[in-house]
Computed example of a mutant assay.
Amino acid sequence: MPRSPLPTDPSVHSFSHAGATLVAEETGGGRPVFLLLHGIGLGRNVFDGLAGILARQGRVIAVDLPGYGSAPEPERTLTMERTADLVAAFVRASRLGPVVLIGHSMGTQVASELAARHPALVELLILVAPTVDKRARRLAPQLGRLVRDLAGENPLVLYRGGREYLRAGPNLRGKTRAMLSHRPELAYPRIAAPTLVLRGAEDRVCPPRWCRFVVASIPDARYSQVPGHRHETMIRDPREAARRIVAFVGRFDAERPGS
């Protein structure tokens, strides 16, 4: 499927750095600033429901990472580290920081690297369905878990996910390789920002054992499960995840300058 041209909506703009381009869509206003990073094969549109809720609380920026959504393919597939550096450059250039950084699935890997490599830019970190479980860091186990997770899933999730996977283009194999070769557990101990790890209680891609390991590895982290949800919890019905995110952020509101 041909990639859509860069949008002309004034709330949507592109940012290029070191040979790669991301696309950002903004809603809401004020602080905090929520920055949303999607998973593999997806794009910023999967956050529409969550962004609508969070926009009542502050400024929300959802990103298409390079080669996803309406962002053009880079000449070379970016590693998670280089993707994090691109997002960090965007945050600095746009004078957004520090941000409340929210990553979903592969987006948690980018978010973790950003928080570890550029700590001054991240106020709070939220990892939703963190990947990749180091006990299943191969394509076959990951696909098997994803298939089991999607069995009987809501048609909206299947439609949005399938549409975005098609838009991700022919380089999805290289992107998957970059995701699976990344070692997020090396970044976790270097994260200084208070962190919330969210998991759908029925998520078959991110088992509880792995999520507990993630929480234990990050110096200031806590864990929460969303009952009745799977890996794509923020696509099917983001309200419960949003409620937990808002509650987590609210704990730090009194410490925010200007509150």
Rank of each mutant, 00 (worst) to 15 (best):
T21P: 03
A71K: 08
T79Q: 01
R3K: 08
T176S: 14
R236Q: 13
L35T: 03
S112Q: 09
A192H: 06
T27V: 11
C211I: 08
R190I: 01
P227A: 11
E255L: 13
H118W: 10
F34Y: 14
V205I: 15
F90V: 11
G200R: 08
M234E: 02
R95A: 12
P155Y: 10
L158F: 07
A242I: 08
D85L: 02
L78A: 03
M106N: 15
C206M: 02
V226A: 09
A201T: 12
P66A: 13
A111I: 05
E232P: 12
A140Q: 12
P10Y: 10
A140N: 08
V215A: 01
E164V: 06
L125D: 09
M179V: 14
E185Y: 10
L101D: 02
R117K: 10
R243D: 06
N154I: 11
E73I: 05
R95W: 03
G52Y: 02
G43V: 06
A247G: 04
Y223W: 06
E255H: 11
S181Y: 06
R145H: 14
G152C: 05
S105W: 04
P155C: 12
L146D: 10
G19S: 00
E25H: 13
A62D: 07
G49H: 04
A193Y: 05
V33S: 11
R183S: 11
P7G: 08
Y188N: 02
G144Q: 13
V91R: 00
N45L: 12
H38K: 05
E185D: 05
L139N: 01
A18E: 00
R31D: 15
L127N: 07
V226E: 02
R222C: 01
H38Q: 11
A168R: 05
T8M: 11
N171P: 03
S259D: 06
D237F: 15
G52D: 08
L86I: 00
L78N: 05
A18C: 00
R95M: 07
A88G: 06
L22D: 04
D203T: 00
A254Y: 13
L180P: 13
R92F: 11
N154E: 11
V12I: 14
L146H: 09
P130R: 00
P219Y: 00
V214G: 02
E81V: 12
G19K: 00
F248C: 03
T77C: 12
R137V: 08
H229S: 15
T176M: 15
L96P: 09
R76A: 11
Y165E: 12
F248A: 02
L37H: 09
G30P: 01
E123H: 11
R95Q: 12
D133V: 10
H182V: 06
A151M: 10
M234Q: 09
P119M: 07
P170H: 07
V128E: 07
L78V: 03
H17A: 05
R135F: 05
V60H: 04
V197H: 07
G161I: 13
I53D: 06
V132L: 07
N154L: 13
P119C: 10
S224D: 09
L96W: 03
V100S: 01
I218D: 01
A178P: 08
